[in-house]
Simulated scan of single mutants.
Amino acid sequence: MGRFFDHGDLRFVVLKLIAEKPSHGYELIKAIETAAGGAYSPSPGVVYPTLTLLEELGYVVASDAGGGKKLYTITPEGEAFLASNEQPVRSLFERMAEAASASAAFSPQILRARENLKTALRLKLHGGQLSAEQITAIAKALDDAAAAIETI
């Protein structure tokens, strides 16, 4: 698959999400991933420079939210920019909704199974010292699961 967004599109998406709810960078990454149904998840290396650009353009302001986090809020200039680009923004969100409807990443069955795996792995890894045999068995189970999924 090629690029999910064309050059400059991500700033529209990020700005629209901030207009709906002031957010941290990580929250925006998760919101975009959810809106795209898991078909696309932007990396921090794309989201944070986009936030910096929006801040430099005067479209958002960042406030210290503690713990090294910044909370981004839209400005009147950002609202005007969104309003003047209403059609492209709407088209982007429609495209993300189409990707989400075609994606199985957030199907209830796959979400449940993924969470079960993550929980079992976390409990096992943090439940005490593992023997070399246990580590080998866990790695093999994960490799086997990956191989089985690839053949589907």
Rank of each mutant, 00 (worst) to 15 (best):
M1C: 06
G2N: 12
G2V: 06
G2Q: 11
R3I: 01
H7I: 06
R11H: 08
R11N: 07
F12I: 04
V13I: 10
V14M: 03
K16P: 01
I18W: 10
K21V: 00
S23F: 07
G25E: 13
G25R: 11
E27G: 10
L28M: 02
I32H: 03
E33W: 01
T34V: 15
T34S: 13
A35L: 05
A39F: 02
Y40P: 01
S43L: 15
V46K: 12
V46C: 07
T52P: 00
L54R: 09
G58D: 06
D64G: 05
D64I: 06
A65T: 02
K69Q: 11
K70Q: 07
L71Y: 01
E77K: 13
E77N: 10
E79Q: 15
E79V: 02
E79S: 03
E86K: 12
R90L: 08
R90F: 07
S91R: 14
F93C: 11
F93M: 09
E94Q: 14
E94F: 08
M96N: 02
M96L: 10
A100Q: 14
S101W: 05
A104V: 12
A104Y: 09
F106H: 15
P108H: 04
I110E: 09
A113S: 06
N116Y: 09
L125M: 15
H126D: 10
G128L: 12
L130Y: 12
L130T: 06
A132K: 08
E133F: 01
A137P: 07
A145F: 15
A147D: 10
I152G: 00
